[in-house]
Structure formats: C-alpha cells, structure tokens
Design a protein around this nucleic acid. Structure first.
Lengths: 117, 117
DNA sequence: CGGGATCCGTCTTGATACTG
DNA sequence: CAGTATCAAGACGGATCCCG
C-alpha cells in the first residue's frame, strides 16, 4: 500500500492504496461503527495486532483518508476520523456489503443494529 | 483468501475472498478487457508473477467466481471465464473505478477505449 | 491506562528457473 | 503456453516493553 502506482488504471491504483486485508476494515469501523480510537479498532477488527494497526493508521493518515486529532488537551488519547476523501469510500464499502450479503453464506447484518447505512 | 471466515460481517468476508492486490485485477481483466487466458493476464496485470497468477486463478475457481474451460480438444490452452457470481462483482469494481478516478491523481480511462463499462 | 514500538517466529508472497 | 518448484523477502500475529 501507498507505494508508487503500478499504472494509471483506477482499479489498480485503488488497490495500491486500500487493497489489503485490514485497511477497509478500519475504515468500516470508522464509517459504520463510529469507532475513533486505537483500542476500539483493536477490539473490532477481528484480530489485528497492534503493530499492524499502527502501521495502517499511519498509512491512512499519509493517504489523507484519515486524520488524527487529539482527544483533549490533557490526555494522550487520540481520535481518528475519516476525511472527506475517506468518507467518499462509502459506495465502495456499500457495494462490498451488498455483494457479500448476496453471495457469501453466513454473512449478515446484526438484526439489533442499524449499521451499514 | 478463501480461508475460513473471520466473522459474519459481509465486508470482512468479502475481504477474505477478494481482498488482496491481485484478485480484483484478474477479475477486472476478465470483466472489462475480455481477457481469458493465462498469458493475457500475465501481460495485463502489471507485473504479476506466474505462480501468484496460478494461485489466484485456482482460488477464484474454488470460490466459484471463475470457471476454467478447455480451449479446444487438441490444445492445453485454457479459457478462464467469470461465473454469474463473478460477474456480480461489477458494482464493486465500478465503485472503485469511480473513487479512483475522483481521488487518485493520474488515474484515467484510456480515451481510445470504451472499457470500464 | 492509552497508544504505540520492538523483537521474534511463522506464514504468505513473489521473482526466477524450470518442466510437460 | 501454462503452469510447478524453489527459495528469498516481506507481511503478519503475539508477546513484551516503553513512554507520557
């Protein structure tokens, strides 16, 4: 990710940026589950380890898909939030949700939840 | 890819199946560029190596996104074609194309071409 | 305590050479 | 032409440590 582009193809370039097993999961957490903190991503993203998470958050910042803001003046706590460019990935995630729900057995949206909107 | 699911989340599961740097590129070649043969994918998919291509094609077959058909009786040539399930990934690719074109500099659709439809 | 960095063993990926 | 074998490089998981 975030390496030099392999081509001018928008699919190839998109995959260069977000085509791994974790990046879109972190964006999902921010977009649909309103997660904002390191520890929340750790819990939510099915088994990501701390070094990988730190690495992906840094990449996402460098790609301007996410911005890192201090939680308050008196805490080291950080908030990670989607930028406009990050939010614009919603149609991509929605398309994947629709495809997954239709074609992958056992995928579902939790009924007690209004997520994925 | 094609390992056991990490969860019931349709995004996570979709990423388990197609969330790597090559799989969607091969599907792009079949869907938009009408490629069907091993060698065509090798040329088109910006530097994929033969073992990775063979591996991904096998995975795609096992996931029933692609089917492998003999080209003729008297040739070892194989044709790889999208199944209905594979074709149903079009909206995902279209969403990535739209995002890439809008947010990644230097991405473009070749003007002499009517691809990506 | 939150947010990482570092180290290490393992698993995955990939470039290259080779084969039917 | 369409792959397989080999082996090196890199990505990853988990534990541990660190720093404010």
């Amino acid at each position: 990710m975030s390496k030099s582009h392999r081509s001018h193809c928008p699919i190839t370039c998109s995959l260069d940026l977000i085509g791994d097993r974790w990046t879109l999961l972190i964006i999902r957490d921010m977009m649909f589950f309103k997660k904002q903190r390191f520890e929340e991503f750790l819990e939510s993203a099915e088994g990501i380890s701390t070094n990988i998470l730190a690495n992906r958050l840094k990449s996402l910042e460098e790609m301007n898909l996410v911005e890192k803001l201090p939680y308050s003046n008196h805490s080291r706590r950080m908030n990670y939030q989607l930028t406009e460019q990050g939010k614009s990935l919603r149609p991509v995630l929605k398309a994947m949700i629709a495809w997954g729900l239709k074609y992958i057995p056992d995928t579902k949206i939790p009924d007690d939840d209004v997520t994925y909107q």
